[in-house]
Design a protein around this nucleic acid. Structure first.
Lengths: 340, 340
DNA sequence: CTGAAAGCGCTTACAG
DNA sequence: CTGAAAGCGCTTACAG
């Protein structure tokens, strides 16, 4: 492995000049730059990142805690997110360092340690929970971070974030069902203690109200995000005196539960009942009829996360406008919401 | 941030002694160690990893290329694999660095660069293709790596690997179907140019022969790993003069295609036809009936990968026996193979 | 068992 | 525009 010194000797300049050729080429005279560049290529020189990091105390590495899930509950769009995050990081010359940590406050010593030992410059948080305690802790420790997802605090969000506009997404899905002729559209949600659930619910309610459609008794709060819960809630909506003809589900899993319950009753999604999910997970295109779902714009999310995390205070690209932090999901229309 | 120097001053010893307290505590007198340890804790000292890496030229980081998939084709068990890999790496004091690269030989400059700049010590390869060119290239460059998956070369495997015993797994699945009363068991595979497909096919064939069951005309090679391909192949097996009553599918996706085709014909998996998949992906437990599938032992795979990659030549833990490199998948039995 | 010193490979004021 | 020198925070032979 060639070093800076060897390149300098080969090009007959000082090491400082070689360093400049790499990091501030405009400081060199064109002919010097040319000569140094040739030596660099000839010797196949690559700067040692550890030496650089030691000097600059920036490692260009971003920590991401790989979520663990209770048995079977896979994170269905994680590979999309990770790929997007990786690409966005690489576009700024950085990389993602993966680690595991206990959930909640118990995991914070791990974050602290990675930062203190200078394995990472900062963190991207995801799997953000309602009232997630990590954000406040990191902020207090002055450890750089950015969150995918809001903590849904009453007060202000502790630290920067990017999120998907779930309310707007569910409103879009609701309007879509209305446009395909549905007049009684139910909502499959989670318990109201979840900020995310509340947000998506509000979008459905707002759209219904604007369209003059009923909402009373049409929102069911599933105790957990499982097929069974989704199926049970769907049964409830179908057994009502006035059954629904459309269902906006807060997640693909709940929507799949709805799909199962419909099939069990001999009903067809898309024909008898319009149905939409959320996340556009791999499950959505696998079922039959395929599931209409709201896709999170992972590339834009990742780019925004990295941009915020790596923004140097005072470079003008300061506090992103709220609109930049709340990205719109895209409705991917499939058979489950075909015109009835 | 406290440095070694500051800790040394506080404990009234040399920096060398503090370093030893951390890396070779047995060299210190107990009372010295005690005093130094107290200073370390008091000052909340954490060794700077960059300085250490610069000196030792080992970064304790392992590169993993996050796969990108053509639209929709998600890597359904990637989150399981990544979590296991992360945990295994952390158990040896290491971490995973994520990166993206073009597939095949085109990506090798990225690997080379990460290694040359000392961002990683080596690589874990997955998504190993039949005749994967990466292995030979890395070996030639003397860049440390270990592969999840075999390259299926005629000659010897270039470099160390860990893999799942697909042949044995499919034999197990076949015997399982036979035990539940199936007598005519088909196989849903991929084209025979795939080493992995050939391996799994051989397990099915071997088991059928041992059980005295027919195999002639019962293996279908699906052109691609999609639901449609699986459904078409299943139709072929069911439309034969003597239709099958059992199906071993090489992947969960193909099995899901089979499930769809069965349902379309009013047949029920588990009752009319026994069916198994491979991977135990999140899809398996979501469909109805749920899919019996072969689960890859991710924790053991990851542990073996890291152990092989980080084995220092000459520490006795040398060449793993073939048995340690070929792990057995576990048959997770669900409704699709319920006794008929 | 403990310490003084060199050095890993860079970057960065500071001179010239 | 270019160079000599200091220093980032560690570890590692080498003495004592």
């Amino acid at each position: 492995m060639a070093t800076l010194k060897q390149v300098a000797a080969h090009a007959e300049v000082s090491v400082q000049t070689v360093s400049n050729a790499l990091n501030a080429p405009h400081r060199l005279r064109p002919d010097t730059l040319e000569r140094v560049t040739r030596s660099i290529e000839l010797l196949n020189y690559r700067p040692n990142r550890n030496a650089r990091s030691l000097r600059t105390s920036a490692v260009e590495l971003i920590g991401y805690c790989v979520p663990s899930w209770p048995d079977g509950q896979a994170h269905l769009v994680m590979d999309q997110f990770l790929h997007a995050l990786c690409t966005a990081a690489e576009n700024t010359g950085r990389h993602i360092l993966l680690f595991t940590a206990p959930t909640g406050l118990d995991g914070m010593p791990v974050y602290d340690d990675l930062h203190a030992r200078r394995l990472v410059d900062g963190f991207v948080l995801s799997q953000t929970e309602t009232h997630d305690p990590r954000h406040g802790w990191l902020k207090e420790q002055r450890i750089p971070f950015v969150s995918f997802g809001r903590v849904w605090q009453q007060t202000t969000q502790p630290g920067p974030y990017v999120d998907v506009d779930g309310a707007s997404g569910c409103a879009t899905a609701t309007r879509h069902l209305a446009e395909t002729g549905r007049r009684r559209i139910g909502f499959l949600g989670w318990p109201r203690t979840s900020g995310l659930a509340e947000d998506r619910l509000s979008g459905w309610r707002r759209a219904c109200q604007q369209l003059g459609l009923p909402t009373d008794g049409l929102a069911v709060h599933c105790p957990e995000d499982t097929l069974d819960a989704g199926a049970d809630a769907t049964a409830e909506l179908l057994d009502a005196t006035e059954p629904v003809d459309g269902i906006v589900a807060l997640s693909d899993v709940l929507a799949l539960g709805a799909l199962r319950e419909l099939a069990r009753r001999g009903l067809t999604a898309g024909t008898d009942v319009g149905l939409t999910g959320f996340d556009d997970s791999p499950l959505a295109s696998v079922v039959s009829p395929a599931l209409t779902s709201l896709r999170q714009p992972m590339d834009r999310i990742a780019t925004a996360l990295i941009a915020i995390l790596t923004a140097t205070p005072g470079d003008g690209a300061e506090p992103a406008a709220p609109a930049d932090r709340l990205l719109q999901p895209e409705l991917v229309i499939r058979g489950s919401s075909a015109p009835g």
